[in-house]
Amino acid sequence: MKLTVNNREEIIDRESLNITELLEEKKFSFKMLVIKVNGQLIKKPEYNSTQLKDGDDVMVLHLISGG
């Protein structure tokens, strides 16, 4: 599957992939994460049920303190 993750092209060798699996695959283990797929916010309870498809544009945002 070919995805764009944080503006970078990624080829992930899987037939199907949900958000939880993508985070495991990419080793994103931060606790305060925001995920957007094609501009749409995906909330945590929807990570398992959100299936990614070829060409999806995924933003993984790690929120940290400071301002």
Binding site: N6, N7, K36, N38, G39, Q40, D57, M59, L61, H62, L63, I64, S65, G66, G67
Partner: peptide, 29 residues
């Protein structure tokens, strides 16, 4: 998101997803 410390001018950036725009280095807490 991410602006602590000093130096590292080159890692401060801006990116967006639809109407969300993120400025900062996204790493220095």
């Amino acid at each position: 998101i991410g602006m602590a410390g000093w130096g590292d001018n080159d890692i401060i950036h801006c990116r967006k997803s639809d109407k969300l725009i993120v400025c900062g280095d996204e790493s220095n807490e």
